[in-house]
Structure formats: C-alpha cells, structure tokens
Write a protein that binds this DNA or RNA. Structure first.
Lengths: 215, 215
DNA sequence: ACCTGAACACCGTTCAAGT
DNA sequence: ACCTGAACACCGTTCAAGT
C-alpha cells in the first residue's frame, strides 16, 4: 500500500476528460492518457493505484463542475438548477456519463450536490424521513434521462419509430398503433426534461402538503 | 456485408450471459464466449459482425425474459408487473444492466414492453400526447433505480454515510446534519422501489384527472 | 520523489485457408 | 456452410531498475 502522489492529478484528469470527449470512453486507456501527457503509462500508477481508481477521480472531477446554487433561491429553483447543471456537464462529456451509474457517488463534489438537494427538499416541507428517498428519485431521473438521451436509448434518430414497429406486426403493438400520430414528430429532450422535472416537483409538493394536513 | 448465420445464436447468448453473471461484464470477451462454446473466437464472427452487435443481442435476450402481463389487469398492476419484471431480470444479471442505458432499446422484446406500458397509460386516461413521455419517465426510473442499487451508486454497504460525511466538515453539509437520524438506518431497496413506483403512478393518475376536467 | 523499460497475460478483429 | 490459425495493433498491470 504505497503512498500516492498528488502533484499531477489535475493534469491527469484533464487529459482523461479530453480523450473521452474527443474519442469516446473506449479510447480512454491508461496508455492514451500517458501518451497525451508525454509520459510512460507506468508513471500514472504513482498517482492512482489502478485505472478504476482513476475513473472514480474522473467522475468526481466531472461532478465538481456542477455549480451549487446560491443561497436565497426557492427550493424548486435549487432543484432545477442542480438538474440543469448536471445536464449541462453531461452534454459536454456524454461518454463519461455511464460512469455515474456504475460507481458509488462518494466524491466530495457528489456529496455537496446531494446535500443541496436535501436542503431544498426540507425547505419544500417534505417529511424528513422521505427526503433521502426523494433525492435518490430525483437524481436517478436526472442522470437516467440525460444518459438515455445522449446514449441513444430514446432512439438516436437513425432508427425512427417506423423501423421499430416494422419488426413486429401492428396487431402485436396496439399501443403504438393508437399513438401513431404522436410517435412520428421529433422530441425536444431538453423540453421533456423540464416537463418531467416539473411533474416530479409537483409530486414533492403534494407529499409536503399531505404531511402538513396529517399533523 | 456477408450474410450471417442464425443457428447457434441462442447458444452464444447463453454463454455470454453465463460469463457476465459469473465473472462480470469485463470478463465478457469474444474469446471467453468462444472458449466456453469450445470454438475459436473467429467462429463467432459468422453470427455477429462485431462484439458490439453481439452485446445488442445479449441485451435483447435479457429484456425478452420480462413477462408481458396477461390481459384484464388494471393499468397500475400492468405497470407494476413490468417494473418488477425488469427488476427481477436485473437482479439475476446485474452486470449486464448498464447495457440498457448504453444502447438503443430496439429489440422486439424491448418494443413489446414499451407497447404494454403505452396501453396501460392509455387505460389510465393519460393524455395520449403525454404517453410516450410518461413511458420514458417510468422506464428511466425503473432501470435507473435498479442499476443504482446493484452497481453501488446508492452506497454499497462498505462505505457508510459517516464515511461520506467525513470528507467534508458538518458545516458544509447542513442537509446531512439535519437528516442525521434518518441517514444511518439501512434502506430496503425493494421497498423504496415500490414506494417510488406508487408515487409515479399517482402522478399519472393526477395528469389523467386534470385532463378529464379540462375537456 | 519521480519516472522508465521490458515483460506477461490479455483484448477485438482482419485475412487467407481448410473441410 | 462452418470453422481454424496466424497475425496485428491494442489493453491493464507487475517487477526491477534508473536519476
């Protein structure tokens, strides 16, 4: 268990993010990072014990770019700004986003975002016992929706609804048939993100309201 | 653009799923699949054009294991059964779950799950124009929550809340400090999944109700 | 304190060939 | 129709050594 160096960590994370942004997550190898820094791959192991540990740090660096909203904002604004902040970061580094779902969110930056959300939910009047659950629901939505969009789970444009339905007969897909008129127009994902978030905030409000009447 | 063989595809997908379940997604290599089938790695390229294409098929095979609820159920039951079905599959093959967020959901199995959800939302009385959005919200939640749990994003037990807070001073984390009493007890993820799903169904109900009064 | 070089056990994939 | 074998350009990581 050697002691690790700190000095060039920021440089390493910058190089890693740049590679991921330019050539995708698969191209983000220790050898690529080393080459970009003009150093041997083995030099990196003085700073991180493994690639896995380096990726944790890359994720932390990413989440650190989400701005924490200033004090004095309404709770809805706080939640919206955090969600949009995550979305903005994700759009800049789409290929790194899968890491969020794949490793524990324990970096200081991640914990600060969680804490700001806790405060907002408490300010909204949500029952304290439910606040951690609601934070998990909101963050799961924000990350999941953005990741679905940028990774193509929602359909990446190259494969339109017609092509999807073509694999099965219309009789097997009554739902799609009913909604045919709504499935052809393209979707504005930013808009949908905002609408979903509003609906989820309504849900928080309703939980807060029913907690007030219960006491 | 050669013509691909079909014959041994099921065998290949079985081998791939078994490897992923036993040794994780990183161990799921073409060479490992080939070895398990007693064949040369290159033999696989007669069935799939690339590893990427094979992974798409693995995902399709996984989603095909989600049972489609029988006709005659209430819309809430349909949505719940689909969500629990996804969760059950995910728990059996946790390491494959990240693929859901990483590639388009265009397999016949995926489309059938989406269609069943469309039908349930229409039966609930949700405005047709909002049904695709609500389906995306529900599936994003179901996959995201399950993936967060099994991949450790929600905290994997080895790193408790105390350790998370220890990285920052209590003054920097007023939200965590307020909720201290609620953050120490362990969470039953299955229970939380059910509660969240109920809340989301309430949201659908409310949208349906306000659509009724608007007309 | 910081970095290198050679080596090991792996990858996905191409190409030409074999039955 | 189905599979093999050798080869290429990659991986992460260990170990011993160099300044």
């Amino acid at each position: 268990m050697r002691k690790l160096k700190e000095s060039r960590r920021p440089e390493i994370l910058d190089a890693a993010l740049a590679i991921a942004a330019e050539r995708g997550l698969d191209a983000l190898s220790m050898r690529a990072v080393a080459q970009r820094m003009g150093v041997t791959p083995m030099a990196l192991y003085g700073y991180y014990r493994s690639k896995d540990e380096m990726l944790d740090a890359v994720l932390g660096r990413l989440l650190a770019e989400i701005p924490i909203p200033p004090a004095g904002l309404g709770w809805r604004e706080v939640i919206e700004q955090l969600a949009y902040g995550l979305r903005a970061v994700a759009v800049r580094y789409p290929s790194v986003l899968p890491l969020v779902f794949t490793r524990p969110a324990i970096s200081p930056a991640a914990v600060r975002v969680v804490d700001a959300t806790y405060q907002a939910l408490l300010a909204a009047g949500a029952p304290p016992a439910q606040v951690p659950r609601l934070e998990r629901m909101l963050s799961t939505f924000a990350v999941g929706h953005t990741l679905s969009e940028v990774s193509g789970r929602f359909g990446d444009g190259t494969l339109d609804p017609q092509a999807r339905r073509a694999q099965l007969t219309p009789e097997q897909l009554p739902g799609h048939t009913c909604l045919a008129s709504h499935l052809d127009n393209p979707v504005d994902w930013t808009d949908e993100f905002r609408t979903d978030l509003r609906d989820l905030c309504e849900l928080v409000e309703r939980l807060a309201a029913s907690a007030r009447t219960a006491t």
